[in-house]
Amino acid sequence: MPSAPPADNCLLIVGQVAGSCETRQSPAGVPISRFLLEHHSGQVEAGISREARCRIPVVACGEALTGIAGSLVAGTRLRVRGFVSRANYREGEYRLVLHAARIEMLDHESSED
């Protein structure tokens, strides 16, 4: 399968961990962690204030990222940077997933949503 041409695909989002993190090993032995990130912020669109909310699944691969993800508990505030791709959720149904390249835990005083 030929690779896709390079293109911009970067998401940076702040939110809270919703639920628990699960970690498994890929068939190749690579550790993979998954958790759900919940985002809530105020945004301005076309000059009008609006509320933005979403939940996005996050996948973290490799020792360094799964080490961070494995210590997460519900409610932990994070800044996650990575790329989005689709994942097969159910037979024939796809969802966007954030593949983390960097996970930064935020202190409780931060208000950068």
Rank of each mutant, 00 (worst) to 15 (best):
1 M>I: 07
2 P>H: 10
3 S>I: 12
3 S>E: 12
4 A>I: 09
6 P>V: 01
6 P>H: 06
7 A>I: 05
7 A>V: 04
8 D>E: 13
11 L>R: 11
13 I>F: 03
13 I>E: 04
14 V>L: 00
15 G>Q: 06
15 G>R: 01
16 Q>F: 09
16 Q>V: 05
16 Q>C: 11
18 A>K: 06
18 A>F: 14
20 S>P: 00
21 C>N: 00
24 R>M: 10
26 S>L: 11
27 P>Y: 06
28 A>W: 03
28 A>S: 15
30 V>G: 04
30 V>S: 10
31 P>A: 02
31 P>N: 02
32 I>W: 10
35 F>Y: 07
36 L>S: 15
36 L>E: 09
40 H>A: 15
42 G>Q: 15
43 Q>T: 08
43 Q>P: 01
46 A>Y: 08
47 G>V: 05
48 I>C: 07
50 R>K: 15
53 R>Q: 13
53 R>M: 06
53 R>L: 07
54 C>A: 10
59 V>M: 12
62 G>K: 05
62 G>C: 02
62 G>R: 08
62 G>T: 02
64 A>K: 10
66 T>F: 12
66 T>S: 08
67 G>K: 01
68 I>D: 11
70 G>V: 01
70 G>R: 03
71 S>Y: 04
71 S>I: 00
72 L>P: 03
72 L>T: 00
72 L>A: 00
72 L>W: 00
73 V>N: 13
75 G>F: 11
76 T>H: 14
76 T>C: 11
78 L>R: 03
78 L>N: 00
79 R>P: 02
81 R>W: 09
81 R>L: 10
82 G>Q: 03
82 G>H: 01
82 G>D: 05
83 F>S: 13
85 S>D: 15
86 R>A: 02
86 R>D: 09
88 N>S: 13
89 Y>L: 12
90 R>T: 11
91 E>Y: 09
93 E>I: 12
94 Y>V: 07
94 Y>T: 10
97 V>M: 04
97 V>H: 12
97 V>L: 07
100 A>F: 01
101 A>V: 02
102 R>F: 08
104 E>M: 09
105 M>I: 12
107 D>L: 05
107 D>G: 15
110 S>Q: 11
